[in-house]
């Protein structure tokens, strides 16, 4: 599916086709952050280089959001539906993400792949955010 919607934030989304997350890695100590940031939170130097993060990883923890979050979250026009969220271990960094999955099928260690996720911002404008979905049954 192609969409004219813009990325939710240029410091979060590195590219849309294929979707990749933006991060930053410290040239001095190797610490990797998500999203990209200017200062290293470990060695405190301003030696961060912007990188694309890996698109696959394993589930580190998760839960389900059963109630509608407060603004600036906006529910779809069809109404709020519960959604799972979690942290996915990409190797050098563990990132927090929406999950596109059946929560009952999730386990720590489940292999996950990055996918685009359409979100709404103020006034109902669509933007492209990100999620992770189980990596089985699709091409990387």
């Amino acid at each position: 599916m192609s969409s004219p919607a813009p990325p939710i934030d240029a410091n979060v989304i590195a590219s849309l086709d294929p979707i990749r997350l933006a991060g930053a890695r410290c040239a001095e100590c190797g610490t990797t952050t998500f999203p990209a940031q200017a200062d290293c939170p470990r060695c405190a130097r301003r030696t961060m280089n912007r990188i694309e993060l890996p698109a696959e990883g394993v589930l580190w923890t998760w839960t389900t959001q059963t109630f509608q979050p407060k603004a600036p979250y906006a529910a779809p026009s069809t109404g709020f539906e519960p959604f799972p969220v979690g942290y996915v271990d990409l190797g050098d960094v563990i990132v927090e993400a929406r999950l596109e999955a059946d929560p009952e099928a999730l386990r720590v260690g489940t292999r996950m792949r990055l996918v685009p996720l359409t979100l709404l911002v103020d006034g109902g404008q669509p933007v492209i955010g990100y999620a992770f979905a189980p990596a089985t049954g699709g091409s990387a």
């Binding site: 979050p69 906006a74 942290y87 929406r98 996720l117």
Partner: peptide, 19 residues
């Protein structure tokens, strides 16, 4: 940035549950 809240991640109880 606002993206974090717009993504539905700005919820304290999510964190307690995931921890």
């Amino acid at each position: 940035g606002d993206w974090y809240g717009q993504s539905g991640l700005m919820v304290t109880t999510q964190f307690f549950a995931m921890k």
